[in-house]
Nucleic acid binder design. Structure first.
Length: 110
DNA sequence: GTTCTCACA
DNA sequence: TGTGAGAA
């Protein structure tokens, strides 16, 4: 049925997003945030990037990019970086839990 | 292109 | 809180 096709597509999209990884330069272009600042934030614990095979360069998934964008907004609105980190962390956790349940319900409900 | 560090505002 | 600059 069409419903099953839609569920499959939703799952594929979900997995695709989780595999989308880019370098710091790409993130900088996308977000408009200088690479220097991104590394600075990582140093402050705002984001946790992964390392590539050589372990020499940072890799960011869409969740990292999302988090970076959110934190930038918070800071723009007058939050301190530390406060923004905590707030965004909390929001991301809530959202991820919800979407994880959604993903599970989609795959279980086959 | 990326990494780091030290100094500076 | 964030940048500049130099070096690898």
């Amino acid at each position: 049925m069409d419903k099953d096709v839609q569920k499959l597509n939703a799952l594929l999209d979900f997995e695709l997003l989780n595999k989308l990884i880019v370098g710091i330069g790409e993130v900088s272009k996308i977000t408009g945030i200088p690479t220097r600042k991104i590394r600075y934030w990582e140093e402050k614990g705002a984001i946790q990037s992964e390392q590539d095979e050589e372990g020499s360069t940072r890799r960011y998934n869409y969740l990292n990019v999302k988090k970076i964008l959110l934190i930038q907004e918070m800071v723009d609105e007058g939050f301190t970086l530390d406060a923004a980190i905590i707030k965004v962390e909390k929001r991301m956790r809530t959202l991820n839990e919800a979407f994880q349940k959604l993903a599970n319900s989609i795959s279980d409900d086959n």
